[in-house]
């Protein structure tokens, strides 16, 4: 696989959200607006890339049986770093995303990439894989966030384009499930055509 392929496969072909259906909790929980989705995506991208790099660096020194616990410690440390930085420099955003920031630890995408890719590949490829998967995840979050915000609040990244309220349902929990369902259908249709 070429470097470019490693980077881009996470965006469409193996998109972690739309194709692999991983990381559904933050996907639904943090996308009440496009900007929230974007921030969560970037936070995850950051943790994913760093943990992929760290794990591919230390993979040769870790005994097979304690592989998973070691990965979890590494990932949890990066999550805490991101958490502290967000609390210090973007406190508003930190308050909005709430419990989902520490929950990046249990986002299956991150442990999944660590186990499936970073523990078998060199540093550069692992970094590219992390960035690609992170971008794919961010893209999915922004897409869902944009749709929910447009339908639910009638705005795009905070800019109102209709008067009054939108269809409130889409900002609330049920709308998250339903909007994601239809995005999946559209994504599947489009990628089926590409193939």
């Amino acid at each position: 696989m070429s470097k470019l392929q490693i980077l881009t496969k996470g965006i469409i072909k193996d998109n972690p959200s739309f194709v692999l259906l991983l990381g559904m909790c933050p996907m639904l929980g943090t996308t009440s607006s496009a900007i929230n989705g974007l921030s969560m995506g970037i936070a995850t991208l950051f943790v994913l890339t760093l943990s992929n790099i760290a794990i591919s660096l230390i993979k040769d020194f870790i005994p097979a049986k304690v592989r998973i616990p070691s990965f979890i410690v590494v990932i949890a440390s990066f999550v805490t770093v991101v958490q502290l930085c967000m609390e210090a420099f973007v406190p508003e955003l930190y308050a909005t995303l709430g419990v989902f920031i520490p929950l990046i630890v249990v986002n299956c995408i991150i442990l999944g990439r660590a186990e499936a890719f970073a523990s078998k590949n060199n540093v550069i490829n692992s970094a590219l894989d992390g960035i690609g998967m992170g971008l794919g995840f961010t893209m999915a979050l922004v897409l869902l966030g944009t749709v929910r915000e447009a339908l639910g609040a009638g705005s795009f990244f905070g800019f109102k384009f209709i008067e009054g309220d939108g269809i409130l349902l889409f900002v609330l929990a049920p709308g998250a499930f339903i909007a994601l369902a239809y995005l999946l259908v559209i994504f599947n249709k489009l990628t089926a055509k590409l193939k």
Binding site: L21, L169, A173, P174, G175, A176, F177, I178, L180, A181, Y182, L184, V185, N188
Partner: peptide, 15 residues
């Protein structure tokens, strides 16, 4: 998955 998600959405509405 899509139909499952729609179902979940309706269940969430009920809740």
């Amino acid at each position: 998955v899509p139909i499952a998600l729609v179902t979940a959405g309706i269940l969430a509405m009920a809740f």
